[in-house]
């Protein structure tokens, strides 16, 4: 790789280079300072890493929804975080009902299956309706129009569910089989984290094979390549786009329940941050790229978990945990500025 300076360094270039240098210096100095103080031992870092991977796999699942939709429509479904919220918030009522009747802890697999089903189906229905009502009529509109609609849809869904289910934060009932830890190679890991990581991986592998091997998956790839030609080949483009939203919704609904395993509480506004972060993950991996979204999610989760402490603690910044979201957003901004085609994507 050759480093080539532009012939004329403009004001914008200057700012961009300043930003690059500042970030690199900041990360190096911060990490060095933290590591040299040695506050956190190996175990501590490992715990943070596992937390990060678990959270990252949830981001990855949500990110798949962004990436799939972007793949076929070339639009950012800004309301996808709300699709995620809709499912898990609705499933809360199923979960409490099951817990009250004793099914959830008497027959946990059946109970969990119902909760997953409620969440996934609700998210799917919301995603499909969203596409039908808000996006389909605007498919030919200038680019910014669907994006503004999507922002509106995000607000609208958030506050619809707030008004329907109430504005309070609700706690899911405890699921006994998921409490406690597994011992994996002598390392105790929370059961929930293991379940989250394993289910997320299963879902992602399932999606990969669905897109690569099935007829519908092939139709989705065709639509993503060229809608006109796909239509000429006898593919029902509208239906494929609906299916894409449905799959994104299913994955988001599952991600919602996994999210609850880790954090236990639901509210109407819970979709915003995971939504933005998952979008970051999708862009990080190259939007439209399924494998990229998975890796992007994991990377973001780990960075967000380790980053604030690693970069900032050594510099004497107080309460680094408050700045977790700043790390995620900064990553979002930097990726979009410097590598908008993602890490796995290619510049065109």
């Amino acid at each position: 790789m050759r480093l080539r300076l532009p012939e004329r360094l403009s004001f914008v270039d200057l700012i961009l280079w300043g930003l690059r240098v500042a970030i690199v210096v900041f990360v190096l100095v911060g990490s060095y300072a933290t590591l040299s103080q040695g506050v956190l031992g190996f175990d501590g870092w490992r715990t943070l890493l596992i937390v990060g991977v678990a959270q990252g796999s949830i981001y990855a699942l949500i990110a798949l929804g962004y990436t799939l939709v972007y793949g076929v429509l070339f639009m950012i479904n800004f309301a996808h975080g709300e699709v995620f919220m809709a499912g898990v918030f609705t499933a809360f009522f199923a979960a409490t009902a099951l817990a009250d009747s004793g099914i959830l802890n008497g027959n946990p697999l059946f109970g969990l299956a119902i909760i997953f089903a409620v969440s996934m189906v609700t998210s799917m229905v919301v995603a499909v309706i969203l596409e039908r009502v808000a996006y389909r009529p605007l498919r030919r509109a200038p680019r910014l129009v669907p994006l503004i609609t999507a922002i509106g849809a995000s607000l609208f869904l958030q506050y619809t569910f707030r008004s329907l289910y109430g504005s309070g934060v609700r706690s899911y009932p405890t699921i006994e089989i998921l409490t406690g830890t597994f011992d994996i190679a002598g390392v105790p890991i929370q059961k929930t984290q293991v379940v989250v990581i394993v289910s997320a991986i299963l879902l992602m592998v399932g999606l990969y094979f669905f897109v690569q091997r099935t007829r519908t998956g092939r139709a989705m790839r065709a639509v993503s390549e060229d809608k006109d030609v796909a239509a000429m080949m006898g593919i029902n483009v509208d239906r494929v786009i609906s299916t894409t939203f449905a799959i994104g919704g299913l994955l988001a609904g599952a991600a919602g329940i996994l999210y609850v395993f880790l954090f236990n509480s639901v509210s109407f506004s819970m979709g915003f941050l995971p939504g933005i972060k998952a979008f970051t993950a999708a862009v990080l991996g190259g939007i439209g790229n399924i494998v990229g979204a998975m890796l992007g999610g994991l990377f973001l989760g780990v960075l967000e978990s380790i980053g604030p402490f690693l970069f900032l603690d050594g510099l004497g910044v107080p309460s680094t945990n408050q700045l977790r979201d700043v790390v995620a957003f900064t990553l979002l901004v930097l990726v979009l500025i410097f590598r908008p085609y993602g890490i796995l994507g290619r510049k065109e």
Binding site: F11, V12, I15, L16, L19, M75, I76, R143, L144, L147, I276, F279, V283, F329, T330, L332, V333, L336, I337, P340
Partner: peptide
């Protein structure tokens, strides 16, 4: 300065992040 080279929808998200 750093964000204005982005196209429309990415610009929106970056500014939201900022």
């Amino acid at each position: 300065a750093p964000v204005l080279r982005l196209r429309g929808d990415y610009l929106a998200i970056v500014t939201l992040g900022i």
